[in-house]
Structure formats: structure tokens, C-alpha cells
């Protein structure tokens, strides 16, 4: 898959004035931002703030009502699906599958799937190939979804609430995996409402409230400017909720 514009420093993700209106609700309102390569970015917002909708639109699961989204210059479509690895809040696996089947599904459809890496990560997450998806606990299922998403060599990783519903030990393990996993030519966008555990691994944060972007900046600079942690800033922004 060619990435357009290799001759210039192309942004991995460009979102221009994107809005999304469902039947009766304005879920996302005029959001614009760009993401460069080699970054880990936090998409911070409370539940229902629109961050999941934004991720779905980037991943191609939903269409913006207006505005444009491009990945390495390519508008969202079949090609961008091979550039993006999405871990949604719903399982990607089907209930008839075993863990091994799930890996096979991924390797069948994604050319950038790294089987060896997946198996290593499964080991790390304490999952076995023969486990039936149906019999996995919520925590184990989340670890499987994360393994699948991270075992691809994608340009943009979208993780929707990877830390939700996961015990603190597993959380540390996941954070470790994310830091180990970082590549200079790809970026990771992580949406979450649990900020304090994870803010140390973010380069930048984008805060979304009621579908609107209220802040986008470099984390260290924000700390310097405000003398506050991202967790505190987050709480301030969402104080009225």
C-alpha cells in the first residue's frame, strides 16, 4: 500500500472540520486536528463526549456528516483500513472462534499482521491459542483485542478505552506493552477517561467535551504552563458534567 506524499513530512492523520449528527443528536461538532508520526496521543473525554464516534469515523465504521478525514493523505476508505489498526470497545472476534482462529482471521486479511509478535504478546498476556473466545473473561478478552490490534504494523493505532474494566496489574502490563511497542513512524491514539494512570505516556492530549474539542496540546508544555497534571486539567474541564 503506497503512502502518498513520502517526499514531504506527511501527517498521519488529518481531520478537518468534521461533524457527526445522528438522528437526533449532534455527537461531534466541527473537530479539526492533525497528528504527526511517532506520537502517542490521548483523546480525553467522559463517556458520551464523542471520542468513540471520532475514532469510528477515522476507522471507517461511520461517515462524518460533514468535513474530511485523511490518513497519509488518503480519504477514509478501503485503503485506509489497511493503514489503521482499531481496537473498539466491542470485541473484534466472533463467538465461534478460538484465539488461534482470531489470529488466523487477522493474518488472512491484513498483510501487515505479524504472527510471531502476536504469539509473543499472547504469552505476555497469558492467553493460549486453544482458548475459546466464548470462554474468556472480560479482562482476558480485552487483552486479546489489544494483542490483535497491536500485532499489526499499522501507521495509526486507535485504541478505544484500552484500560477500562481492567485490573491494575493488567493495566501496568498494557502500559508497558504500549511503551515497548512505540515506533517512530507510526502513532497511537488512545481514548480514555481514566487519565492519571496513563498520562505519563502521552506526547499530546486532545480533550473532547460534548462533541467539541476544548484543548489540544503537548503534555509537558501544558504541565509547565498550568502547573497541573493532565488528570487535574481534565477534571477541571469536565467539572460541570
Amino acid at each position: 500500500m503506497q503512502k502518498k506524499g513520502m517526499y514531504s513530512v506527511e501527517d498521519i492523520l488529518q481531520i478537518q472540520q468534521v461533524s457527526k449528527k445522528y438522528w437526533s443528536k449532534q455527537a461531534v461538532r466541527d473537530i479539526s486536528f492533525t497528528l504527526g508520526p511517532g506520537k502517542i496521543i490521548g483523546l480525553l473525554g467522559s463517556n458520551g463526549s464523542g471520542k468513540t464516534t471520532i475514532m469510528k469515523m477515522i476507522a471507517g465504521l461511520a461517515q462524518p456528516t460533514s468535513g474530511k478525514i485523511a490518513v497519509y493523505g488518503n480519504p477514509v476508505g478501503v485503503e485506509t483500513k489497511s493503514l489503521i489498526s482499531f481496537m473498539p470497545d466491542q470485541p473484534l472476534t466472533e463467538s465461534w472462534m478460538t484465539v488461534g482462529d482470531a489470529l488466523r482471521f487477522y493474518s488472512d486479511f491484513f498483510a501487515d499482521f505479524d504472527q510471531a509478535k502476536a504469539e509473543r504478546m499472547l504469552d505476555f498476556m497469558k492467553l493460549s491459542l486453544a482458548d475459546k473466545v466464548r470462554s474468556l473473561s472480560k479482562g482476558m478478552s480485552e487483552r486479546l483485542q489489544l494483542t490483535l490490534a497491536l500485532s499489526r504494523k499499522a501507521s495509526l493505532y486507535l485504541l478505544d478505552e484500552p484500560l477500562g474494566g481492567v485490573d491494575p496489574v493488567a493495566r501496568t502490563r498494557i502500559l508497558n506493552a504500549l511503551v515497548e511497542f512505540y515506533e517512530e513512524d507510526s502513532s497511537i491514539l488512545i481514548s480514555t477517561h481514566l487519565v492519571s494512570d496513563i498520562e505519563r505516556i502521552f506526547d499530546e492530549v486532545i480533550m473532547v467535551k460534548n462533541g467539541e474539542m476544548v484543548m489540544h496540546g503537548n503534555v509537558e508544555e501544558l504541565r509547565l504552563q498550568h502547573g497541573k497534571s493532565m488528570d487535574e486539567l481534565f477534571r477541571e474541564v469536565f467539572a460541570e458534567c
Binding site: 506520537k39 502517542i40 501496568t172 508497558n176 511503551v179 515497548e180 512505540y182 505516556i201 506526547d203 509537558e220
Partner: peptide, 17 residues
């Protein structure tokens, strides 16, 4: 950079800086 980032669980860019 990688070792330190991994040990401390912080962003590698921060370590780089």
C-alpha cells in the same frame, strides 16, 4: 531511550527530550 522509557513507563519522546 527505549530502555529508560520502558523501565519508567513513560513516553520515549519525553526521555529523548
Amino acid at each position: 531511550v527505549r530502555e529508560l522509557a520502558s523501565d519508567l513507563q513513560i513516553n520515549p519522546n519525553t526521555v529523548q527530550r
